[in-house]
């Protein structure tokens, strides 16, 4: 049985442009077969016993297999004029959807996994940053995160200290805001939308809203796919595949404050699909 807390959340299930182009996507959500299809000009999601509610936002199709507990989150920055919106496409990963999100919240791996791009030795230190659970929106936020990056974005020419904010607005979603190398004072927005197929298998949809008028779209997509595929070989080799929520199974440090908050937030809200509750 899947907990109602899990069923009542919104999940990404397709790229809207592909469904609008007439593609039909047969996939899974929380272990149930679903179909995403265009019917009479509207996108519909059909579950095993009927259709699910649909929201089209951030270029993707979102659905809720239960009764939506709240509206799907918003990212006001996405609507700013001048941003390029980039659908990066789907990548399947054999891991818990929660591990995929947690990895996205992590910066300490940059020098070892995204070497010479998002990080490089000897610049490995993670400075103290702030983490909070915002009560009004019930979201996990990390702010004042800074890290030295050799090539922070496709548009970045030289190494810079990048500032980040991380946000978890839904159990299988994270959005980050990072220093924009092109427009000072603005944030580039990068999201990771994770569709939980099962507790140990997910389809991941990276997404970007950037200020960058120069770089061709194919290069923007390639850059983000490169970054995410560097993570994939990590995600498929973490043991256990489920995310342990009980302390003791894995040892965090101060650099992992966001991940600690995310795990607590999941546990407190009963969002345990893809989690391991008892140390094996």
């Amino acid at each position: 049985m899947i907990a109602p807390e899990v069923l009542n959340e919104w999940y990404p299930v397709a790229m809207a442009s592909q469904i609008r182009a007439g593609q039909r996507r047969q996939t899974q959500l929380l272990g149930q077969p679903i179909t995403v299809v265009l019917t009479d000009g509207a996108i519909a999601v059909q579950g095993p016993t009927g259709s699910f509610p649909v929201i089209e936002r951030f270029g993707h199709v979102w659905t809720c297999p239960g009764t939506p507990a709240h509206d799907l989150f918003t990212v006001p920055e996405v609507d700013q004029p001048g941003r390029r919106l980039v659908d990066v496409g789907v990548v399947r990963v054999k891991c818990s959807p929660l591990r995929a999100v947690e990895n996205f919240l992590d910066i300490a791996h940059f020098p070892f996994v995204h070497t010479d791009i998002l990080g490089a030795e000897p610049h490995t230190e993670v400075n103290r940053y702030e983490v909070q659970i915002r009560e009004d929106t019930d979201e996990v936020w990390a702010t004042k995160v800074t890290f030295y990056q050799p090539q922070a974005a496709k548009s970045a020419e030289v190494g810079i200290v990048t500032e980040y904010m991380y946000r978890v607005p839904a159990p299988t979603v994270s959005v980050l805001y990072k220093t924009c190398p092109v427009v000072p004072g603005e944030w580039d927005v990068i999201g990771i939308f994770v569709q939980p197929l099962t507790e140990e298998l997910c389809d991941v949809w990276p997404y970007m809203a950037l200020f960058d008028d120069v770089t061709p779209m194919a290069e923007l997509i390639a850059f983000q796919q490169m970054i995410f595929l560097q993570d994939r070989s990590i995600l498929e080799n973490q043991i256990p595949r489920l995310l342990p929520l009980d302390p003791g199974m894995e040892i965090p440090t101060q650099a992992d404050l966001t991940s600690i908050a995310y795990r607590r937030w999941l546990k407190k809200r009963g969002l345990t699909y893809g989690a391991q509750m008892v140390a094996a």
Binding site: F112, V113, T115, D116, E121, T124, Q225, L229, Q230, R232
Partner: peptide, 16 residues
Amino acid sequence: EMPGIHRLHELRPAPV
């Protein structure tokens, strides 16, 4: 390298 084939960090000495 390319994504999926990570850097051989052992080829460089430890910074610390």
